[in-house]
Design a protein around this nucleic acid. Sequence first.
DNA 1: CTTGAAAAGTGACTTTTTTCAATTCTAAAA
DNA 2: TTTTAGAATTGAAAAAAGTCACTTTTCAAG
Lengths: 235, 235
Amino acid sequence: MSIKGLFPIDKWDFKSESIFADLRPEDFELLTAHKSEHVYKKNDILFREGTYPSGIFFINKGKVKKYKVDKDGKEQIIYLANTAQLIGYHAILSGDRYPDSAAVMEESVITFIPKEDFLKTLDQSPALNKRLLKTLSHEFAVLANSLTMFAQKTVRERLALQLIVIREKHKVDAVEGAPVEINISREDLASLVGTARENVIRILTEFKEKGILETKGRKIIVKDINTLIKIANHK
Amino acid sequence: MSIKGLFPIDKWDFKSESIFADLRPEDFELLTAHKSEHVYKKNDILFREGTYPSGIFFINKGKVKKYKVDKDGKEQIIYLANTAQLIGYHAILSGDRYPDSAAVMEESVITFIPKEDFLKTLDQSPALNKRLLKTLSHEFAVLANSLTMFAQKTVRERLALQLIVIREKHKVDAVEGAPVEINISREDLASLVGTARENVIRILTEFKEKGILETKGRKIIVKDINTLIKIANHK
DNA sequence: CTTGAAAAGTGACTTTTTTCAATTCTAAAA
DNA sequence: TTTTAGAATTGAAAAAAGTCACTTTTCAAG
């Protein structure tokens, strides 16, 4: 997935290839033996930083934020996970506690798979091992990229970049052809970009005045993605 | 490794448990069948971002920086690797190109293991698979932590934190009992902290005036680690 | 259709960080 | 020991980002 060749999205977001794509039927059987499905409401919490993991979560449909909270309660969003993505496996693999929290951003349908089944499947499936190694090292590269972005880009550039990335993500669940409406609170946007809410609002206003985007209630509609790309790449 | 219980270093740095610790002898044999050892000089480059990986590098003794360079040539250090650490495996696992570059920071002895041997060993060793999954997910957590730090802490706080982390790393190769001399250019320090060199220098001067550290030529000696910890944690 | 609480937006001001243009220092090589 | 290039340092000014106090808008429950 790329925008005019300029913007390889998988440099900025995790590949969406399914982690379970090449499992043998018997492995898939074992993995999903005790799965359960739930509908979560907005703001429901899937897991909390510092607790021990009980299983993994597959997002059938919806949006989930992974975030960390610092001493002052300030939230930092690490990643926005979408429909068809799996979360919560890092802690199980590392044998440690969850390094971050996860909360549902809009009503979502999510499948839970107990830790034991995941680990058992991992023991008997070389394909799953290989796939997870690939996924994790790719995720690492994406995160390293984010780090560089935080260290070197201005808030304005980071916001432009995130708007592009979020818009791409929204496409997954969007109606074909219709303009993509980005539905995210200014607070979450600020937390994703790593700045204050007021700052985000000011820059959004500037973008609106320049015709780069429009708002419809609280939703954001990108009108001029090329300028947004230019801004994100500037420096 | 922790400092007064306050500061779990493995939250800020990768575990130094050897990745090869629990390999069977025959797997270790296969892995090291075609290894080669070289002495690298300061500023030698091990690999460059965007190139295809040819193997993995084990640091027998020395210091290596992993970094990314942006369009303007500005360098961002992602990680400082030390004696007994392994680098360059992410790209091989992801099946992609190197996401960052690696350069030697001081004369270093480094063992090279060809990609083919690494992959073959990976195919026949469940222990290596397990260990790598554990390592990668831990590394991911550390990087997520760094990201949060970049997004939420001031330059002053980040510099304090990095000084603590670097000092811990220097201990590995330091003479027992002697004061730890941090040997890093202001430029590299700035690149690690994600700011301008001048900014680093000003804050170092401030720390010096407050008796938190001393300099000996270009080397930095931490005198009051507790204050440094307080500064790093403030917010 | 109202309405109240949460979210969004504004303005003024402060602090932090960057930038640029010097000058001084350090360490390695001659 | 001297030389000298690269590294470190300093000062001043501009720009970016953060903070605080407040007003307006939105949206969903009643």
